[in-house]
Structure formats: C-alpha cells, structure tokens
Design a protein around this nucleic acid. Structure first.
Lengths: 206, 206
DNA sequence: GTCTATAGCCAGATAGAC
DNA sequence: GTCTATCTGGCTATAGAC
C-alpha cells in the first residue's frame, strides 16, 4: 500500500539530515571505542559542528548512544523484513542469515558496543521508549523463528528459547570476531563461516 | 620436591597480606562494575585504607587491574594443574572442566571484566610482563589440550585451534551467563550445563 | 540553531605531615 | 607506610552572543 507523503517542511528535512549524520558518527565511534571512551567532543569534531549544537539535537550523551542503538535495531528489522519477503526459506536459515548480517556489520566497524555494565547508560536505555520498543520488535520476530526452528527440530529444543535469543544477541557483539580479524589470517568470509559453525554446531565434533 | 622456605621478614609478610586484600577487592569490584565504572576511591574504601596508601602499593589504576587479572590467571593455572593430577581424564573432559570452572567464578561474582576496547588499559596490559607471562602459560596449556582433543576427534578439527582458544576465553566472560542468571529462573547448575551445551554442541540439533 | 567560552564536577594521582 | 588535603586534567553540559 502506498501512503501519500505528507509535505515535509524544508527546515525539518535539514534537521533530519543533520541528525542522521550525527547518529552515523556516533555509531561509528561507539563501534570503534565503546561508550565510555567516546567523548562528545569527538562526536562534534567528527560531524563537523560545535558541541553545543549537538546538545540542541540530543539532550545527553546517553541519548546519543540510544539513537545509535535504535538505528542499528531498525536496520536489523529492515533486513529481517527483506528476509521474509525474499528467497531465504525456513526459520533456521533465516536465523543464520541474521547472524551473518550482524557479523558483517561488526566487520564493517559499525556495530555499536555498549559496555554491558555501565549503569548510567543502562538506566537511560531502560527508560528509553523507542529503544525498548525496537528491541522488543526484534526480539519477537527472532523469537518466532526460534520457536519454529525448535518445533521442526532444526534447533535444539532442549534449550530454553530465551537462551537461544540471548546467545544470538551476544554473538552480534562477540569479541572473538575482532580478535580473529586482528590476526589478519582470515578473510571476512572465512571469519563469518567459522563463527557460524561455533555458534550453531559448537566446538565439538558430531 | 619440597623446597626449604626462605625466611620471610615480618614486614614483607604484612605487605603481602595487605596487597592480597587490595587485589581481592579490586577483583570483586572489577567483576561487579567493570574497569571504567570502578573508581580508585571505591577500592580504597572497600579495603579500608586511604587512597594515597593504595598508590604506595600500585602505581596506577591499570596496575590494579593487571594484578587482579594475574590473580585469576594464577588461580586458573592452579585449577588446571589439579585437573592434570586428578581423576579427570582426556583433553575434552579437561577443557569442559575448565570452562565450567570459569563459569562458577563468574557466578560467584569474581570474574574481573575488562572492557575489550579501553585503550589505556590494553596498552598497560600489553606491556605488563607478569600478566603476559601468565596469559601465555594458560594459553599454552589450553592449546595442548585443544590439539589433543582435535587429534582424537573430540573437537571439530576443521576449526583453527586459535579460534577454539579465543572462544573459550570469550566464554569465560560471556554476558549471556549474567543475563540468564538475572532472570532468576535457573539454578547455577542449570545455567552452567546449558551454557556448556551451547558452547560445545552449539544451538543446532544434531 | 550555530558558535565560543566557561561552568561544574569527578576521578586519578600527589604533597607533605606524622 | 599511613593519613588528610589538594592538585590537575578532562569530560559533560550550559550560558550567552550572534
């Protein structure tokens, strides 16, 4: 269904472009250095505007990080929607495709990493409606695929579905990928295939 | 072989006890909050001495973290030596036993977590002789077990041994454990057995 | 809304008396 | 070696001119 576009004022368009540029910078810096090591000054310098201008768009450093997280979650939703519309059939194949996608994002240096324990940030995220909403959407879609894959016996049905979900999220920012990449011994493709094996088949021999 | 103990001066003994207490506190705080969120003031308060006194023992916050890492690596070496002397036979069984041990340490809130990206800390560790030495010892012992397990077909021989090694290190501080524990739905024993499955058998069905 | 300049704070590290 | 008190730098956030 095609929805007629509402006319968007010019100023509003400018604002969006600016904010997109900001969030893209934040995303890259978060991926590179992590939340704590990233400074708002760096973000401003990277975008090419003054720090005070940043604060006209986002009211805190935490808001910046949340915006970056929302962005990557929406990209994930977009990818997952494309998967459902496309030729990739079966829940397991789709779960693997998403996992592969998260690894590609990591390799591209575009997976924001939020230290799991930072309390100021966690509190901000736990109160951030949009972030929670997107996170829920992704979780529900993945959850449906996990359910289906367990019912058809493609995934180990003895594992609690939440465990599978948490594991997939964890693999999306698994440090092993970075370490493996740093050795310089493997191509991106090899790294992804190796990590897919350890994730879905484990380290053991069958 | 029993080595005759050199006589240790009383003052030296006092110093060691103090430093052990300091490192134990650091270890716990690192596990609880991570390196960035941990403050030297907190450490001093937790130990019950003044901050300036801390700096008579360790010359920087990074040195504190390094000492905690050395401590846990030495505990690992001790555990691994006991494994080799004990009833646990076979390289795979030993690898699983070590993995189980690291998860118990995590559950006990005693696995120091060093954000993978902090550059000041990483530089300090990369130049820390004792830390690197212990890390190498652990890696070599694990590497030998991995080799053996791959030769006997207990571990997937198609995986590069380094990948297996990095994966085991990563699982020693896997956030999935904490998340699973936070749900309150599983006992420690269940959590450990579930994570051992995902690590060695993967998410898929065989 | 953009900028320069600065406030305010916090944490790592140190001075200096005992 | 331990303490109290302080220095110092860097970071988030804001004031105020334009």
């Amino acid at each position: 269904m095609i929805v007629p576009m509402a006319k968007i004022p010019f100023k509003e368009q400018m604002r969006r472009v600016r904010e997109d540029a900001i969030v893209a910078s934040v995303n890259r810096l978060l991926a590179e250095k992590g939340f704590d090591a990233m400074t708002v000054d760096e973000v401003a310098a990277d975008v090419g505007i003054a720090k005070a201008s940043l604060y006209k768009h986002f009211e805190s450093k935490e808001e910046l990080a949340a915006a970056a997280m929302v962005r990557v979650l929406e990209q994930a939703l977009e990818f997952m929607a494309a998967l459902e519309a496309g030729p990739v059939e079966g829940p397991l194949a789709r779960l693997k495709a998403v996992t592969r996608w998260t690894m590609q994002v990591q390799l591209a240096g575009e997976m924001p990493s939020l230290p799991a324990q930072n309390s100021a940030l966690r509190n901000a995220l736990a109160a951030h409606r949009v972030y929670l909403d997107r996170l829920m959407e992704v979780s529900e879609k993945l959850g449906a695929w996990i359910d289906a894959a367990q019912k058809t016996g493609q995934l180990n049905a003895a594992l609690p579905p939440e465990l599978v979900l948490y594991t997939l999220f964890a693999r999306a920012c698994d440090p092993v990928l970075g370490v493996l990449n740093a050795t310089g011994q493997y191509s991106d493709k090899q790294i992804i295939e190796l990590l897919l094996i350890t994730c879905f088949k484990g380290l053991g021999e069958r």
